[in-house]
Design a protein around this nucleic acid. Structure first.
Lengths: 207, 207
DNA sequence: CCGCATCCTCATGGATACTG
DNA sequence: CAGTATCCATGAGGATGCGG
């Protein structure tokens, strides 16, 4: 753990725990789903293995993360404690705050669809429930895409290789619209539906 | 600015801007009130002057902070931009999240009453308005204290030297009660009042 | 393979001195 | 007062080793 700020202030004490580099991104990853060490290395996209190891120890000692044993035996699963999961609220606030930073698109940055499992609920509120699974439909340039959001991640259709890029552009479009005030939550509603009711989806997609 | 995470994710991009050490505490300080360089050095309690200088430059370049010229002439005033001020929401979320970290009391940590101008509204919600000024009354060990919260900071009475320590213990007591589930917001209401109506205050303090 | 631990290099943070 | 400049300690990042 990095040096404490030494301030009797809620924000300072919070940052003493989750202010170190990578910590909040680890929490984000575990908000998608509990994960193994290798999943975190992949999902964090750039973290050094020694740092991940250190941070997991810190977060465990602080009571944010806990180790579990996988059902089958010897594999270790990292998961958020109840307290750690309560970081969803401030994290969602930061995601909403960052909307103006997203409008320029991905540029050179890496992208993982599972990140949308945290971002979409933050941006769209209760209209998307990722607790179970959800189907989000987004129209791009008149073409319609379905995105399956589950606890394990996110899958896009059609599966033709352009799908993943389409998801990236979908979030960019949504965030852009929100940030510029060009879109309202109510305007997005026709593009979003929860739990794929086939009839509802057909109506939404006009198919 | 520290190295970018290189992730097309709202949280990662937010942290690219405000994730560096001291950045969020600078924002906290400016949420209390716009301030001069010296005020920030004092209010941040421990920041190195070169770091403060660097961070202010970063935050200005990112559009979180802006420099203003004081009315009188050559003095520089640092203030949040409209976007920067929107960090109040996630910061308040972190303050609420940190409640379990506050229950052990100040220990060796420094304390500045002005920090309560951000923390109290976060913990007590709309019951305290720091936009203008507010009077918060807290009972400690049967003794009653009044805390004047204004845009410029916070002042405690009685002014007998024990007052400041009392404020510290007051927040500890409030936070402790909330965290342990021993206090409910409605239970705190009798101890809190907005805008000192003399009659109401006398009733509250039983004086 | 997974789950780390070690080693090394270099950027960043922290404390202090200094300047317009 | 409002910052710069300087020096040193620390932490990040990358490569690699290593036991299960």
């Amino acid at each position: 753990m990095s040096r404490s700020y030494g301030q009797y202030c809620g924000l300072a004490r919070a940052l003493d725990v989750i202010g170190d580099r990578w910590n909040l991104l680890i929490v984000r990853q575990l908000l998608v789903a509990p994960a193994r060490y290798r999943d975190l290395l992949d999902g964090l996209a750039g973290v050094a293995t020694n740092l991940l190891s250190d941070r997991l120890r810190d977060l465990e000692a602080a009571g944010v993360v806990e180790r579990r044993l996988a059902d089958e035996g010897n594999a270790v699963i990292y998961a958020l404690t109840a307290w750690g999961a309560q970081l969803r609220e401030p994290i969602e606030g930061l995601i909403r705050w960052s909307a103006p930073l997203m409008v320029r698109g991905p540029a050179e940055d890496r992208f993982r669809p599972e990140w949308l499992a945290v971002a979409l609920p933050a941006l769209l509120g209760s209209r998307v429930k990722t607790d179970r699974s959800a189907t989000v439909g987004v129209a791009i340039d008149g073409q319609l895409f379905q995105v399956q959001v589950t606890g394990k991640g996110l899958d896009a259709s059609p599966h033709d290789g352009r799908a993943l890029d389409a998801v990236v552009r979908a979030e960019a479009a949504i965030v852009l619209g929100l940030a510029a005030g060009m879109l309202d939550f109510d305007e997005i509603r026709p593009l979003v539906e929860v739990e794929g009711d086939e009839t509802a989806l057909r109506a939404i997609f006009g198919a």
